Amino acid sequence: MTVLAACTPDAPAQVAPSSSSPALSPTSPSPAAAAASESPTAAVEPAAQAPVAPSPAAALPRQFSLTEPASPWLVVNKYRPLVPADYVPADLVQPNIPVTVSGEAALLNSTTAAAAEAMFVAAARDGVSITLASGYRSYGTQVTTYNGYVAARGQADADTASARPGYSEHQTGWSFDIGDGGGACGFQPCFADQPAAAWVKANGHRFGFIVRYPWMFHPITGYYYEPWHLRYIGVEAATDMANRGISTLEEYFGVEAAPGYP
């Protein structure tokens, strides 16, 4: 099966178990095998169908830009690159949360960092331990990653395994990957059944986060299911999406589906 992918961070280190909650299953069925995606691995899904062009879902009145990288409502996908391509957030900080990475990968923009801190504290109160497994990735990091795939596989295959530079949400500072405090199933399909994944799926909107690449929506988002990849869009918009059962930013804002590069 051909797989979709965007970038491959180093494998995160495990941390000492701290979660006391039992694993919960997400509402959609857990996938059975791995395939690469916006993070190093992702769930295999059935063969992609023809992409559906989302229609406007009557989102909240437009408050922020959909194209400005510093906007929490930015939509970046395989049809919508960052402008400028080498964008660097001006306010990168390291949040005060458990991390399994270092350097730039431990950074988020200041708004996302503050929301993540509040979310991690709330999860801990519920007995669920979450870690930051991969945060910001610079344009230069993505160039190195992508070029490595091109050298090893050729460009056509590289585009199924790594995002082209300037097309990754991780470069914006608005997105990050999480791990479970118990260290199980990092960047693997079984992560969907871990306490951290179940908790953020049910509660992330309360802090402004969505699971950006949900199960079975790859013909719209361009990426297979990633229960670990969170995206900050603000509490109001994230809660509106959750309450109305809207799964993707493309659908919510009525922008074109992006199954592959044009």
Rank of each mutant, 00 (worst) to 15 (best):
residue 188 Q to M: 13
residue 165 P to W: 05
residue 151 A to V: 00
residue 224 Y to K: 07
residue 230 L to K: 07
residue 161 A to Y: 12
residue 236 E to P: 00
residue 236 E to C: 02
residue 173 G to F: 11
residue 134 S to M: 06
residue 189 P to C: 00
residue 200 V to Q: 05
residue 164 R to I: 13
residue 182 G to V: 05
residue 220 I to D: 00
residue 138 S to N: 10
residue 127 G to P: 01
residue 202 A to T: 13
residue 229 H to I: 11
residue 125 R to T: 14
residue 243 N to D: 10
residue 254 G to E: 04
residue 191 F to K: 08
residue 204 G to A: 04
residue 186 G to M: 12
residue 234 G to P: 09
residue 221 T to A: 07
residue 243 N to V: 01
residue 197 A to K: 01
residue 236 E to D: 13
residue 201 K to W: 10
residue 136 Y to T: 09
residue 131 T to Y: 04
residue 214 P to I: 01
residue 210 I to R: 08
residue 223 Y to K: 11
residue 168 S to M: 11
residue 218 H to L: 08
residue 163 A to H: 03
residue 220 I to R: 01
residue 182 G to M: 03
residue 187 F to A: 09
residue 218 H to C: 01
residue 176 F to R: 03
residue 169 E to M: 01
residue 130 I to Q: 08
residue 204 G to C: 10
residue 134 S to E: 11
residue 183 G to R: 07
residue 235 V to K: 11
residue 167 Y to I: 05
residue 223 Y to Q: 15
residue 164 R to F: 06
residue 128 V to A: 13
residue 222 G to N: 11
residue 235 V to E: 15
residue 192 A to F: 11
residue 186 G to F: 12
residue 205 H to K: 09
residue 218 H to M: 07
residue 129 S to G: 15
residue 137 R to W: 11
residue 218 H to D: 07
residue 131 T to D: 09
residue 175 S to M: 06
residue 160 T to C: 08
residue 251 E to L: 01
residue 178 I to S: 03
residue 219 P to Y: 10
residue 228 W to C: 06
residue 174 W to D: 05
residue 243 N to A: 12
residue 201 K to H: 13
residue 124 A to Q: 10
residue 123 A to G: 12
residue 253 F to Q: 04
residue 155 Q to T: 15
residue 136 Y to R: 05
residue 202 A to I: 02
residue 245 G to S: 08
residue 161 A to R: 15
residue 239 T to C: 06
residue 139 Y to Q: 08
residue 182 G to D: 15
residue 159 D to P: 04
residue 226 E to F: 04
residue 180 D to Q: 13
residue 191 F to Q: 01
residue 171 Q to A: 15
residue 234 G to K: 07
residue 252 Y to P: 04
residue 213 Y to E: 11
residue 248 T to D: 04
residue 174 W to E: 06
residue 132 L to D: 03
residue 235 V to F: 09
residue 135 G to H: 05
residue 136 Y to F: 15
residue 163 A to N: 13
residue 184 A to C: 00
residue 202 A to G: 07
residue 149 Y to N: 09
residue 206 R to G: 14
residue 251 E to M: 11
residue 198 A to K: 05
residue 171 Q to W: 06
residue 228 W to E: 15
residue 217 F to T: 15
residue 226 E to A: 14
residue 165 P to V: 07
residue 135 G to D: 07
residue 201 K to I: 11
residue 166 G to S: 08
residue 239 T to N: 12
residue 250 E to K: 02
residue 221 T to F: 05
residue 196 A to H: 02
residue 161 A to L: 12
residue 232 Y to F: 14
residue 226 E to R: 13
residue 196 A to C: 07
residue 207 F to L: 10
residue 214 P to E: 03
residue 155 Q to Y: 13
residue 222 G to C: 12
residue 183 G to K: 02
residue 172 T to K: 06
residue 205 H to C: 05
